[in-house]
Design a protein around this nucleic acid. Sequence first.
DNA 1: ATGGTAGAAGGTCTA
Length: 261
Amino acid sequence: MKIATFNINGIKARLPRLLEWLETCGMDVVCLQEIKSVDDAFPRAAFEDAGWHLETHGMKAFNGVAILSRTPMTDVHRGLPGTAGEPDPDNPQARYMEATIEGVRIASIYLPNGNPQPGPKFDYKLGWMERLYARADELLAREMPVVLAGDYNVIPEDIDCYSPGQWADDALTQPGPRSWLNAYIGLGYTDAVRQIHPSGAHYTYWDYQRGAWPKDHGIRIDHLLLSPEAADRLTDAQIDRMPRGKEKSSDHTPVWVDLAA
DNA sequence: ATGGTAGAAGGTCTA
């Protein structure tokens, strides 16, 4: 069972490129982030016509997540439990959803960026990561395969960054967010790409500016965390760099895991 | 120190 995460940076701008990739990628499930669309404006038919089941959790202009699946989804849940820390608790930012697919609980996550730090946006990121910790812990109690997939906006270690010195003051490398990510690992989750590529520099994001892509000035911020029941089934994890090199690409590229049947 | 690019909007804000 192949499961991907892909921050597409706008569903409307990315639609043709995304459909091309979906045709050939061989994925069973694709978690999308930054759809930047309300649910009603999401181009559902294009995906359904191509044979995908689709669930979205969007909002106006920013953020927004979705899950595509070749087989039906059950028990779909939108929003990260607990609204404490949301700037507007009555209208929480659309950054999290879950669904069960073929017995695997899968989350699509768009974690707050947190820049500039320090500041209220960084505090929001830390609070969000604390709430995700609580949810990740709850999911472990189900004793089922869980895959927490998404754009975490955290560079786990300096080897995940082309130039750690240039990122030293950025919210993506700060000790606080890194500690929360390590806390998820401490609960029993496995960073799938790190597991398969223990010492490699494997990036998932390259800025649109300053020629970051041709110079391979990338960072690794898109992750799939696996519960023990999922990690036991892990046979492969890869970053597909091809989509990043296309015209009108996202600034992220897809990351995927393969779980044995 | 600034600006460089991109997307959703049709304001600037976010990254």
